[in-house]
Nucleic acid binder design. Structure first.
Length: 900
RNA sequence: GCGAGGGUAGCCAAGCGGCCAACGGCGGCGGACUCAAGAUCCGCUCUCGUAGGAGUUCGUGGGUUCGAUUCCCUCCCCUCGCACCA
């Protein structure tokens, strides 16, 4: 703060008024009032409310701008739907399990539970200070036994349905987090942990898996119907599932029997010149025991991440099941054990990677597919292409393929798959089962007991929940160290046994939380089935793109399982999805590490929550990234202040202006604004809706500056502006709505309505804007310093008739057709001239308002021109002026006469 | 490499067959108000033009059309996701 030593009293007052309205007081007042009236409560008995949901946050203790944007979008939409008269369900909760709480607890010598609840308290306060209208009665926190018992219950139900599997698996292990990660949680080529960016290692562990692959086909196929989802997300899920149709077939290898290989291009089998095995294929491992060279390759040289395909030749051969040919077998690092069968037939003529390897190893490259010739007769076998330099990877016509030569690739694949004894159609997925075991404390204990005799046994339903023991500050897994907790008896045979010490991936929590909001306190089921069937699916879901695959795919999976086994009548959880863009600073993502973070708290203190929300919503479409700008925030704040001043002034004394042409212009603008803004709110383009509201505010201010406004019109205008802003700037909207004399909350008000024809609105605005621009241009080009009088002359009726005829007419000779109308023909040369014009623009003609409507529109907008040029403006009809004036007048374009 | 989304005036950003030299904002320029500054308000902001005109523009090059920023194709560039996937 600067200190003033010589400031005079008036300048101090000035400073104070510049500081703006007392947003802190306004916001506090209405937050308390809402709270008292419980306005955001959604009673259990409402019928199919509009379900608006933002992805619940991890309670880190601090709301950041990304949260503010996310939850302002849902809040604005929820409020809008409410104003529209819908019942709305808009809940909030906490993704409260997770590793950061453990780390924080260790650092602060507390425990994850206390730390997490502290964070929740703080964040809830921050959300309330933002004015987000949640039904806090439905709040959930996933770290409470009341919530996570249902994770355990669902786990046992999944188990009963055969969707849970325990497997010894090679898993991604983050040494920093000391836990396993799902494939989805490993990022990029460098394979870094999604949380801490530590390079991930591989470990062999016994793991619990949810068999999401059982649902791969449905998860894939239903993406087509998710029309309310962004294409990007849909495509990412399709890629992730990665279904591929192909053929599985067997190659015999001496001494090892039949080896299964998967190919999508069985049509190229005549071109298979070698066979390749993954380094960790069982045969490779056996060979490595016998051969020093192969051992060296498998354990030291193989580099699956490298760009170069490496390999080593074995002394084995594989038998091509079609040709009977013996081809050499390699162990190669570009063959991956988790893709297909870990063994492949290599066709260097038609696969780039095989080509590169064959070139390196000096293997034969044989063309067996030729591009289909343009004039192909469907029979003749074309010439083989040259594939010595580059593989030909497209489909085509088979060559060098015995009896199959001359077939198209597609047909050949079908026939070969049918005719090769060992071959059958097969489908491969990239999607893997979901490993949910985590070696951490702060998560849902997996409800399993390990018994030496019975093996892993599910904890019976009546013994749920398995609650977490007290936190033990240790380096490994605290559950492993909780000896007393760990020791139990086998539910099946009663002997001493130990508890499973792994907890569940927190994505299990978030895969069904949206169902828990429906009945958050229900004690005998995860959710009230009947109500869930009525209330689900979520109508509008909003969150970050980073959850495009994981959370959104798991939630879809859970929903489908619940539909199949628990009577849920919905197979998809989220009808409409909005992936909101990032809030950036100078083109860069805000992040603590970059130190370019703008604190929402500071903005709220300085300008208020309404300003922060309004600025964000008007800055860009919700799905786009945008730059935070202090300048923009200030101008948003200034706008709210001006609006408040306008309302203050308007309510001081009753205006008593006439319901004149100007009032009708304003009334029209109000209607137009309502129509456009409503449409924009419907499709969540808040930026456009808010622009309309701000434009109307400006029109109203100009109106009041120019003349004594018509009280009813002006107040309706203000009341409309206030309601259009209410979803985004709810506190000030309440304040102003009350000032305007309403007793009810604006939250509960009715959305303004307007009966308008969008097409007419557009034409009116266009006409007025074009006319104003023409006047400006004339004044400017003609160098008129100080206009004395401006006449605006609407074109004569016959021109409108002629225009209409011209639009409808198909006649070659338009002028002839026009002249058949006596009232047009009577116009003589003028009619001929105008007819010429119409003829010239024949294809581009479009209808205009009719002459009376144009007159009205111009008459009511005349004040804008008078005000701008400080000269009287007369809008006149064609019959009131001399014909010479009318030459330039056309429908949609009045003649303009300026005297100086 | 594959897939998705983009490239619009100094910058940000709407538009997505004729109403488009192209909404809106920022920045810049001029004016009103003020002793002055700020705030606010009103214009201007591709080029030329003494009555609403003309010319050149919406990544590049083609095409469809009476007409394209808007539709189709080629290429270039950006962002995101997947990727030695058999």
């Amino acid at each position: 703060m600067e200190s003033y030593t010589t400031a005079s009293a008036p300048s101090v007052y000035k400073q104070m008024s510049d500081a703006g309205y007392d947003h802190a007081a306004v916001e506090r007042r209405w937050q308390e009032a809402w709270d008292e009236a419980d306005v955001y409560r959604t009673p259990d008995d409402v019928d199919d409310p509009t379900y608006v949901l933002g992805m619940y946050p991890y309670p880190s203790g601090k709301l950041h701008m990304g949260h503010v944007r996310n939850y302002t979008i849902t809040d604005a939409y929820a409020r809008y739907r409410r104003l529209r008269g819908d019942e709305v369900l808009h809940p909030m909760g906490w993704d409260a399990f997770g590793l950061p709480a453990e780390n924080a607890a260790k650092e602060r010598d507390t425990n994850p539970r206390d730390w997490t609840f502290d964070c929740i308290e703080t964040m809830r306060d921050q959300m309330e200070s933002m004015g987000f209208g949640y039904d806090w009665n439905r709040e959930i926190a996933t770290c409470t036994p009341e919530y996570y018992q249902w994770n355990q219950w669902l786990f046992t139900r999944f188990h009963e349905e055969g969707l849970v599997e325990r497997r010894d698996a090679e898993v991604n292990w983050c040494p920093e987090c000391e836990t396993v990660l799902a494939d989805e949680q490993v990022e990029g080529e460098a394979e870094l942990c999604w949380r801490c960016d530590t390079p991930v290692e591989q470990r062999e562990l016994d793991q619990w898996f949810l068999r999401i692959t059982e649902y791969a086909d449905e998860l894939l196929e239903d993406i087509d119907d998710l029309e309310g989802w962004p294409n990007s997300v849909r495509q990412m899920q399709r890629n992730w599932i990665g279904r591929q149709h192909g053929t599985e077939l067997e190659f015999d290898i001496d001494g090892y029997g039949s080896i299964e290989a998967f190919t999508t291009r069985v049509d190229t089998i005549y071109g298979a010149t070698f066979f390749a095995l993954a380094p960790d294929h069982p045969i490779s491992e056996k060979l490595a025991e016998e051969s020093e060279e192969i051992h060296q390759f498998v354990h030291h040289e193989a580099d699956p991440e490298g760009d170069e395909p490496n390999g080593v030749e074995t002394d084995l051969t594989a038998t091509n099941p079609v040709t009977g040919e013996e081809i050499p077998v390699y162990v190669a690092d570009f063959v991956l054990s988790d893709v297909g069968t870990g063994a492949l037939m290599a066709v260097p003529g038609h696969d780039e990677r095989d080509h590169a390897f064959a070139t390196k190893m000096g293997e034969e490259i044989v063309p067996v597919i030729a591009p289909e010739p343009d004039d192909w007769d469907g029979e003749t076998v074309p010439d083989a292409p040259d594939v010595s330099e580059e593989a030909y990877t497209e489909d085509g016509v088979l060559v060098n393929s015995g009896e199959y030569s001359g077939l198209e690739s597609e047909t050949a694949r079908e026939r070969l798959t049918a005719e090769i004894d060992s071959a059958e159609e097969a489908t491969q997925y990239q999607l893997r089962d979901w490993g949910i075991s985590r070696q951490r404390y702060w998560g849902t204990p997996i409800p399993v007991v390990h018994c030496d005799d019975c093996g892993p046994v599910m904890v019976p339903e009546e013994d749920l929940p398995v609650e977490l023991p007290e936190f033990i500050n240790t380096t490994g897994n605290p559950l492993d160290a909780a000896e007393e907790w760990k020791q139990t008896t086998c539910p099946d045979c009663g002997v001493d046994a130990t508890r499973e010490t792994d907890t569940m991936d927190t994505f299990v929590d978030s895969s069904w939380y949206f169902l828990r909001y429906v009945s958050p306190d229900l004690e005998d089921a995860p959710f009230d089935l009947e109500r869930a069937n009525d209330w689900m699916p979520v109508d509008q879901y909003v969150g970050g793109i980073e959850h495009a695959v994981m959370h959104l795919l798991y939630s879809r999976f859970f929903t489908k399982v619940l539909a199949d086994n628990e009577g849920l009548e919905h197979r998809e959880p989220f009808t409409n999805l909005l992936a909101q863009g990032m809030v950036q600073l100078e083109g860069e993502k805000m992040s603590k590490s970059k130190g370019n973070v703008v604190s929402p708290q500071r903005i709220v203190e300085e300008y208020g929550a309404d300003t922060a929300r309004l600025f964000m919503m008007q800055a860009a479409q919700p799905e786009r990234d945008f730059d935070w700008s202090e300048e923009g925030v200030r101008s948003t704040y200034a706008f709210l202040n001006r609006l408040k001043e306008m309302v203050d002034t308007a309510t001081e004394g009753e205006a008593d202006g006439d319901d004149d042409a100007i009032a009708s212009y304003v009334a029209n603008e109000i209607d137009a604004t309502v129509a456009i803004a409503s449409e924009k709110y419907d499709d969540l383009t808040f930026n456009r809706a808010l622009r309309e509201a701000q434009d109307l505010t400006r029109t109203l201010r100009q109106y009041a500056d120019y003349t004594e406004p018509h009280a009813e019109t002006y107040e309706r205008g203000l009341s409309v502006v206030v309601r259009l802003l209410a979803p985004v700037a709810p506190h000030l909207a309440e304040e102003l709505y009350a000032e305007l004399g309403h007793d009810e909350f604006v939250v509960d008000a009715d959305w303004p309505t307007a009966e308008v024809d969008r097409d007419r609105v557009r034409k009116r605005r266009q006409l007025v804007e074009n006319t104003r621009e023409d006047v400006r241009q004339i004044v400017d080009v003609a160098g008129i310093e100080d206009p004395e009088r401006i006449d605006v002359v609407v074109a004569p009726d016959w021109k409108y008739d002629a225009l209409e005829l011209a639009i409808e007419s198909n006649a070659d000779n338009l002028i002839g057709e026009l002249m058949q109308q006596s009232h047009i023909r009577e116009q003589g040369d003028a009619a001929a001239d105008y007819g010429q014009d119409l003829q010239a623009e024949r294809e581009a003609l479009s209808t205009t308002l009719d002459p009376d409507e144009e007159y009205d529109a111009l008459e009511s907008a005349a004040w804008l021109i008078e005000r701008e040029f400080e000269a009287p403006v007369h809008v006149v009809r064609a019959d009131a002026v001399d014909e010479s004036v009318l030459t330039n007048a056309e429908p949609g374009r009045p003649a303009i006469e300026i005297d100086d």
